[in-house]
Nucleic acid binder design. Structure first.
Length: 446
DNA sequence: AAGCCGGGGTC
DNA sequence: GACCCAGGCTT
C-alpha cells in the first residue's frame, strides 16, 4: 500500500468512526467560538473529566467574552482554582480584553489574529479555527502526535519543536475537504479513547488495518519522547497561625506575587527550611529548630506568633518541584515583648542547624517575597525593631507588611474562602483547620 | 533549546 | 510508590 492510500484510509475511517463514537461534551453542543476557546484552554494538560465541571461553572459565571473581560481577576482565578497552570486563566482573561478592544467582542477568524491572543499558541489557534469555524487548519496536541507517530511510524522525538512542525504538515494533509471540524476532533478523540499512551486498544481501532506502528509491533514504543528531568525537592515549614483577640477564629494567609509560581494565589505563610544540597532532598527538620525558624520568619514578615507543635505533614507535587511540608499550628502573640526572644531563638536554632549540617553559603531567595531561612536571619540582623505593621492597625483584616516588596497578609475566616483562590494543597490544609481536624494535636500540647 | 508553570490519573 | 499525562510563555 502506498502512502497516499494509507493516508486516505486513515482519514476516511477515522472520520466515520468519530461520527458514531463522538462523546457528548458540553462544549460540543454549540459551535460557539467562545465555548471552543475556553474549553481548549482548559483542556491543555488537563483531562476531559476534570474539565467538564469547571467548564460548566465558568461558562455559567462568564457566559460571553464581554462578561469575562469585565470580571474581576480574582473571580476568574477563583473559577480556575484547582485546575492548575493559573497563567492560563490570567492569559484567557487578558485575551478576552484583547477581543473586546481589537475585534468588538467577536472572536476573530483570521489566523494571525487568533494566534496573537494571549495564551493561544500553534495548537490552540488550530483548534479554534477548525472547531469553531471549520477552517482547514491542523491542531496538533499530544494525542495527535501519539496517533500519527504510531500510524505512520514516525521515530522523531515529539518533544522537539521540529517534530511538531512536521506533524502539523502531515495533519493538514489528512483533513478531508470541508471536514476540519469533525476530523480534528476525531484525531484527538482517537488518541484519548483508543490510541492511549500505555495500553492502546488496537483491536477496536478504526485504522488498525494500515497502522504501520502496530504492524511493526511498535505501538508500545511510540511515540519517542525524551523524559522530563525529575522535580527538585524542597522542604518547607508552614504556619497555621491562629488569631487571638480581634483575630479570634481567623487564620493568617497571604497572597503570592503577581508573577511566577502560583501567581496571585493565596496560601498559608511558609518558608524554605534549608537549601537542599545539589540533587538531594534536605530532609525534614527537627521540630524545635523548625518552630524557631518559622517564628523568626513570621517575625521578619511583621507577625508575632508562637509555634505550638506539628499539626501535620503534607506533600505537593509540581511538574518541576516537590514540596514536602511540615505544618505547624501557631498562635498569635502580643507582639512587643515576644519579638526579641523569638529572634534570638531563631538565630540559635539556625546556627545549630547550620553547624550540624554544614550548611555553607545561603542560597538566594528563589521567589520574590518568599524568603528562605538564611534570608530571614539576614533580616533579623538588619531590623532592630518591629515592622511598621504593628503600629498601623488596619481597619479590616487586611494587613500590609510595611515592606516595599512585601506580600499582602490577611486574617480570614471560613466565609472568606469562597472569594479567594488557593492552590489545592492550602485549600485542603485550611479547610481541615477550620473543620477542627488539628484540634487534637494542639490540645495534646496544651 | 531549555526551563518554568499544577494537578490528577493509572498500575 | 513509580510512573504517566504536555501547550504556551519566558529566557
Amino acid at each position: 500500500m502506498g502512502l497516499l492510500e494509507q493516508k486516505r484510509h486513515f482519514s476516511v475511517n477515522l472520520l466515520d468512526w468519530y461520527m458514531v463514537n463522538r462523546r457528548d461534551l458540553p462544549w460540543r453542543r454549540h459551535n460557539n467560538p467562545y465555548f471552543t476557546w475556553v474549553s481548549e484552554i482548559m483542556l491543555q494538560q488537563t483531562r476531559v473529566d476534570t474539565v467538564i465541571p469547571y467548564f460548566n461553572r465558568f461558562i455559567g459565571n462568564f457566559p460571553t467574552v464581554q462578561a469575562l473581560a469585565e470580571a474581576p481577576e480574582e473571580e476568574v482565578l477563583k473559577n480556575w482554582e484547582g485546575l492548575g497552570y493559573y497563567s492560563r486563566a490570567r492569559n484567557l482573561q487578558a485575551a478576552a480584553r484583547q477581543v473586546m478592544e481589537l475585534h468588538g467582542g467577536e472572536m476573530p477568524q483570521d489566523k494571525q489574529a487568533v494566534f496573537a491572543l494571549k495564551g493561544v499558541g500553534p495548537y490552540t489557534a488550530g483548534a479554534i479555527l477548525s472547531i469553531a469555524f471549520n477552517q482547514s487548519q491542523p491542531a496538533v496536541d499530544g494525542n495527535v502526535m501519539r496517533v500519527l507517530s504510531r500510524y505512520f511510524l514516525i521515530d522523531e522525538d515529539i518533544m522537539k519543536g521540529s517534530t511538531r512542525v512536521l506533524m502539523e504538515e502531515l495533519a493538514g494533509e489528512l483533513i478531508p475537504e470541508g471536514r476540519a471540524r469533525d476530523f480534528n476532533q476525531a484525531l484527538m478523540e482517537l488518541g484519548a479513547l483508543v490510541c492511549t499512551p500505555k495500553a492502546p486498544h488496537c483491536l477496536t481501532c478504526p485504522v488498525m488495518e494500515h497502522c504501520s506502528g502496530r504492524i511493526a509491533g511498535r505501538e508500545l514504543t511510540l511515540p519517542v519522547k525524551t523524559k522530563a528531568k525529575p522535580p527538585r525537592p524542597e522542604q518547607r515549614l508552614v504556619a497555621i497561625v491562629e488569631g487571638r483577640g480581634a483575630h479570634r477564629g481567623r487564620v493568617l494567609v497571604r497572597q503570592r506575587p503577581a508573577t511566577g509560581l502560583l501567581a496571585r494565589m493565596w496560601e498559608l505563610p511558609h518558608v524554605l527550611a534549608a537549601p537542599a544540597a545539589a540533587g538531594k532532598a534536605a530532609g525534614p527538620l527537627a521540630d524545635e529548630p523548625a518552630m524557631a525558624l518559622l517564628a523568626g520568619s513570621l517575625w521578619a514578615e511583621g507577625f508575632a506568633a508562637r509555634p505550638e507543635g506539628l499539626a501535620t505533614h503534607a506533600e505537593h507535587v509540581f511538574s518541576h518541584i516537590v514540596w514536602s511540608l511540615q505544618v505547624y499550628k501557631c498562635t498569635e502573640q502580643d507582639q512587643s515583648n515576644e519579638l526579641p526572644l523569638i529572634a534570638a531563638e531563631a538565630r540559635a536554632a539556625y546556627d545549630a542547624q547550620a553547624s550540624a549540617k554544614e550548611i555553607t553559603a545561603p542560597a538566594q531567595a528563589s521567589e520574590p517575597g518568599i524568603t528562605d531561612a538564611a534570608n530571614i536571619l539576614g533580616s533579623l540582623d538588619e531590623q532592630g525593631e518591629p515592622l511598621s505593621v504593628f503600629a498601623a492597625s488596619s481597619s479590616a483584616h487586611d494587613v500590609a507588611t510595611g515592606k516595599g516588596d512585601g506580600l499582602t497578609y490577611r486574617w480570614i475566616g471560613p466565609e472568606d474562602m469562597d472569594k479567594m483562590a488557593f492552590p489545592n494543597i492550602f485549600l485542603k490544609l485550611i479547610t481541615s483547620y477550620f473543620a477542627g481536624s488539628y484540634e487534637q494535636q494542639s490540645e495534646e500540647l496544651n
